[in-house]
Design a binder for these strands. Structure first.
Lengths: 349, 349
DNA sequence: AAATTTATTCAAATCGATTTGGAGTTTTGA
DNA sequence: TCAAAACTCCAAATCGATTTGAATAAATTT
């Protein structure tokens, strides 16, 4: 494997000049630079990462630690993120080191990887309010970026969608259609995104002075099964008067709700409106549901580039405040939402 | 961060001695070694990976490139492997760099990662006969280990199960129970493991002088849906006389077959026997099927340690012939297999 | 007691890229 | 025309661990 010195010898130049030529420093003659590049190409030069790392103190590696849940509900999303992330990192010549969390304490794998001293920073996902991992990394002053936020007032780099607006936009649409009894099938309560959507939902409903009975807010994994099992008693009216609209945290949950509605002989959207948040995963297309699903849409894939870039910029010293991306999910109205049923047998409240 | 020199200064020793003391070389005084270890501990010494790598020429990183298929059938197995693999690598102080293949040519991501010059070797999975990736790595003399074999006569490090024996053991059991019309719902035909099982199945059947009509061997993804859709016409007798036993390439496929049998009002095992190969994934327990599933069992998790160790040994220079593990799946007879039905309305052939 | 081992330790070279502090040349400006 | 500025380029130091070749001290042998 050719080194900088080899190129220097071949061209009668010092390694310093060769290094500068290849790294685009201004103080090298254009002609020389061209010769150096040609020679590097010809000799098949590849910088030695270890040498670079030794002198720069950076490894070009970022870590990600997976907390694999038995229900494997996150698989689809995981692959989606992984694909985009590795591509975005490769664009900036960085790579991803992956480990699986097999400990009880969520911070253990982080301290272990930090001790092993091989990554420049971390990508965290699925933050929870008061997330211990974030506290740890902040204390150790190790660069990281979060997919999501542990708290709306996050002071670290992140990419997140406006989870407060997600249910609000849905409620706005539904109330405009005359709905007053609206249920929320949210994600698991310990995740920050779900907590934020709970708040957004409550806020929106109180804006319209609509009550939210306890039975109308559920938490669970983002699975079809959860949607089905929770919707069934709800739509059967076993939890009080049945909702005329259901807001789902994912399209899979909505699929479960649609199945439950079908089993109950309820028509969508005539009897019940369904709206979901859509991560735009490649193999669950809300548009192809029957009826086509009304959604708040924010493609998961969009998160990848900002996550990679924010982290790498942070590692290069950019201030956290410049590395915070908040996007608004797009409301897309399709066939699964319609006017509230006219025959209101159960006045509300 | 403390360095070897720091420890040397603190103890009045040279960095060379400190290095030897910590790395267990024999030529250092036991007393000195103890002092060095104590000091290293006290100063929180962590070897600088880049420096180690620069001088040893090894990175301590191994690469894995995922070819993510849209059907996402491999998810469960992927997480299982990932979990065990990262643990086994961590045991030997190595780490995993993961990338997703986003190219048409399967070798492209390998050449790219090789050019980026950061891993010591690769872990390959899902080999195909005449696998291009294997040819590339062999040509470049880059260490690798394969989960599976592209060919029974593989001359590289691997961990595999005896895929020839898998259907043979099943056929042995079924013929002993009197079955003569046996179908095979195999994996996708382009994978080496499926090809090998095809051969094992044909060989076993011809041992018993039993014919194998074309319609009795199917290939597809290891999904419940595939099992169901293929079994349905088979069990309906639409593809000729229906089989009395079905061998499935995975427990998920078997789940589909069981559902198809139920839909056709066929009892298992009275009307039809079902046997599957079982990867022993944590959340699909063959034992808890109804009826409990007869399987050839080889826990996927068992592959992880040998894979990691074979690769790391190969990187350290061990010969490939010492790094080949072949295991035999264990036949576990449960309730889904029984004597062939007595009333043979359709003599065979 | 002198010669030879053996046991410990050290100084210095090494890996390969980056970067600092100059040193020649050439160009520009007065 | 001469000094200052601008260009180019180089030598050498640096990052931190490993490893080679010696050197010193202690133990053993003759």
């Amino acid at each position: 494997m050719a080194t900088l010195k080899d190129i220097g010898i071949a061209l009668g130049l010092s390694p310093a000049t060769v290094s500068r030529a290849l790294n685009g420093f201004p103080e090298v003659n254009a002609e020389t630079r061209a010769k150096v590049k040609e020679a590097a190409d010809r000799l098949g030069y590849r910088p030695n990462r270890a040498a670079q790392r030794l002198v720069t103190g950076k490894s070009g590696l970022v870590g990600m630690i997976l907390d694999i849940q038995p229900d494997m509900s996150a698989d689809q999303t995981f692959f989606e993120i992984l694909t985009g992330l590795t591509a975005a990192l490769a664009n900036r010549d960085a790579d991803l080191v992956l480990t699986v969390d097999q400990f009880d304490d969520p911070t253990t794998p982080y301290t272990r990887m930090i001790d092993r001293n091989l990554v420049d920073g971390f990508i965290l996902n699925a933050p929870m309010p008061g997330d211990e991992r974030i506290a740890l990394l902040q204390e150790l002053e190790i660069p990281f970026v979060v997919h999501g936020r542990s708290d709306p007032a996050a002071d670290y780099p992140y990419y997140d969608i406006d989870n407060h607006a997600v249910p609000r936009d849905s409620v706005d649409l539904l109330t405009a259609l005359g709905h007053r009894r609206i249920a929320l099938l949210n994600g698991e309560a310990h995740f920050a995104f779900a907590a934020e959507r709970d708040i957004g939902f409550q806020d929106a409903m109180s804006t319209y002075e609509l009550p939210v009975p306890e039975a109308f807010v559920a938490h669970g994994a983002l699975t079809e099964n959860y949607g089905y099992t929770v919707a069934l008693p709800m739509l059967a009216g076993r939890l009080g008067p049945r909702p005329t609209a259901v807001i789902c945290a994912s399209t899979l949950i909505a699929a479960g709700v649609l199945r439950a509605a079908q089993d109950m002989d309820l028509r969508v959207p005539e009897d019940i409106s369904v709206i979901a948040h859509d991560d735009a995963l490649p193999h669950t297309r809300a548009r192809h549901f029957n009826p086509a699903l009304t959604v708040t849409r924010a493609a998961l894939r969009d998160a990848c580039k900002p996550l990679a870039n924010h982290l790498l910029d942070r590692i290069s010293g950019a201030p956290a405040s410049d590395l915070q991306t908040l996007v608004r999910a797009e409301l897309i109205v399709r066939g699964s939402t319609g006017p509230a049923p006219l025959t209101e047998k159960d006045p509300w409240p």
